[in-house]
Amino acid sequence: MNSFPWLKAWRRWLPWLVLVVAALVLPIVLPPFRLNLLGRFLSLGIVALGIDLIWGYTGLLSLGQGIFFALGGYALGMHLQLGSLAPGQLPEFFGLYGVKSLPGFWQPFTSPLFTFFAIWIVPALVAGLLGYLVFRNRIKGVYFSILTQAALLVFFNFFNGQQKLINGTNGLKTDTAKVFGDLVGSDLVQKELFWLTVVLVVAAWWLCRWLTKGRFGDVLVAIRDDEPRLRFTGYNTTSYKTLVFAVAGALAGISGALYTVQSGIVSPQFMAVPFSIEMVIWVAVGGRGTLIGAVLGAVLINFAKSLVSEQLPETWLFIQGGLFLLVVTALPDGLLGWWWRREVKP
């Protein structure tokens, strides 16, 4: 191996090359529909990055990232619902339920600036609060996973049941709203959104890399390895876990907002239990602890999903179930971990 350094370099860089090609070349060759799909999948890469941060590095398996994903989506969705209305008008669906005045919590979302911050700060605060309540009592491992899943179900029930507040099951549509005079659903805006997604994926990756590279990242890994030990060394691990969970929440929010505008709707389905576990499998397949693997995993699996669902829809659950089994038994470090594995000489 060592006599072919270029081969090693090739192994190292190929995954990056794949992503760069995906981001730069595909927009030129793909038809708008496919490009839109790619944009959606890339935006899912951002929530995957957050999961990698909390699970791949810190060892906290959250099955509830859909909460934060949906909160980001709803924040933007509400703004877009309000954005193209004449003063005094209400979003259409309120009429169905006989709601005459805008509920109070909708009011601030008329402001683009507020919405811009709400997209990531609201999920971060919710994640931080939930995380703090759980971590401060040293609830960890599978208990944490179960509680995040239960929280997810609770949020789902809430959004699903509140027609008068948030249009319940139907969710909020965004593609008929207008930004700068163009329909959100138009090809032009969608292409712009694709580029925005690319930029934000890079930014999110950079943020995660900055967090994990230095001693802060070492603390995260140490929490995964032996949290009590770290506490006896003088680190307040609760604050680290809360912080990193909040960051993952913020990333999920941004991801959800991007996904919403590219798929045209935000609905309680964003908080469906299976969807949030699926997010974990993107990271697992890509390779946890490798940030780029999270993005790659999200794109690849969703791409595979859309292909399979077009051709043989009934086999997708089998394939997905098989993937879960595969990554925990045979590929614990995911595709990239496997790809980048150092060959051990006998």
């Binding site: 001693r215 802060f216 070492d218 032996d226």
Partner: peptide
């Protein structure tokens, strides 16, 4: 009990640090 997935150097760096809050670790070397 050492941190298995960190190198000995990084193990020691975590132990030595007088700084222990997230912000200190992120912004201070």
């Amino acid at each position: 009990r050492v941190y298995q997935n960190l190198s000995p150097r990084r193990n020691l760096e975590l132990a030595i640090s007088g700084q222990s809050t997230p912000l200190q670790l992120l912004f201070g070397g």
